[in-house]
Design a protein around this nucleic acid. Sequence first.
RNA 1: GGAGAGUUGGCUGAGCGGUCGAAAGCGGCGGUCUUGAAAACCGUUGUAGUGAAAGCUACCUGGGGUUCGAAUCCCUAACUCUCCGCCA
Length: 424
Amino acid sequence: MLDINLIRENPEFVKESLKKKGWDVDLSETIKLIDSRKDLIVKVDTLKNEKNKLSASVPQVKKQGGDINSIFDKVKELNSKIEQLDEELKNCECKINDFVSTLPNIPDEDLLPGEKENNKVIKTVGEKPVFNFKTKDHVELCEKLGIIDYSRAAKISGRGTWIYKGLGARLEWALINYFISEHLNDGYEFILPPHILNYESGYVAGQFPKFKQDVFWLENQEPQKFILPTAETALVNLHRNEILEEDDLPKKYFAYTPCYRCEAGSYRTEERGMIRGYQFNKVEMVHYATEKNSKASFEELVKKASSLVEKLGLHFQVSKLAAGDCSHSMARTYDIEVWIPSMGIYKEVSSVSNANDYQARRGAIRYRDKETHKTKYCHTLNASGLATSRLFPAIIEQYQNEDGSVTVPDVLVPFMGGIKVIKP
RNA sequence: GGAGAGUUGGCUGAGCGGUCGAAAGCGGCGGUCUUGAAAACCGUUGUAGUGAAAGCUACCUGGGGUUCGAAUCCCUAACUCUCCGCCA
């Protein structure tokens, strides 16, 4: 949620910033509404003051044997005016809110405008692996190794799903445990949140109202509930409607959850195997930071996410996304993209983002400034750390051997019970 | 799923239709005393909107209602607890 005062005071800046995200918005109507909102508040508060005073005088007047009925009449008259203005005010605030809550976050100033084509690779780690034999893609390798079962998954669930089995399940679990142990070492707090969340949580994270159709909704629940598309949704709501102490920031959390996504119609033919599915595993990191330290938090998250991929010995790159390619709620996003040999492209395994105060404003997540003692909105940041569904194929393909076996990356061996090679 | 009880400020907890944004205690902050600390004593201490400010307005879980007037009465939702049923 953008600050309505910013919209009112600097509409040109807001307009220009949103243009970089590909949004051409007309703010003139909203500005009028913001002004009439203030007028209405002043009017209605004055009337309420008058009414309160009259009502409070009743016992006194009664004691002195004065005319109470004329007070009752006056207050009734005031009440009908107040009711009318209150209605108007509510309407006005609804209109402002309905519009402003659909607006994306303002991108950081240093971002290039535009979409994907303006993303900039800012770092490349390792080199594309060279094979002196004919390579296979991860779907073929996994099926031959018997570590992923696509067809039985289709039978028991449907398309866009898969089954990890045997060493495949162990490799998947090893990855997750490896991430967990790294985050624990860095002093992050481990959270296992519920996977079923209420509407408010999706709203605060910025997924709703715009992306309601991208998540799975539970049918027989009242009020409506959805299954989380990422642990970020849960983590970023942990401190909703709370006031934190500046000394406790940054708060650093991580969570493991599967992620459930509809992504209706987005399944592309080249995205075979587990590149895109309805459910995938992810470990997610979230920081609650102050305005001052949010940049440092961002750098830390980028560093942490890259180091995980680097320690796995995978070839990858880090991209700074153009404004239009950043997520809706985010002011800044860096993607960590791992090389998938069979596709010949880099695929996102981690998205590191800073929402600034966008989510915090929606969720009234504040902290008390030590010096001024005033409350301020937190900055929320999130980063995958990491999504396994892209790493798994990358590992299988980058670590494949001529005989179809796959070498287990060194850092995962301890989490695999010492197994160093996956063979059929 | 059935029956009942509850939800008040950072916490504990009073309030049961009028001056209650809310007693009291704890905690926090400032001060007195002290070489320093503790204790004691004094003062202060919610959030948000609006206004240049004084102030005003709203908020006692959320929403609706009754009333001139609601933390207090009624309805409703969410949540918590207890008992029963079912179940990992």
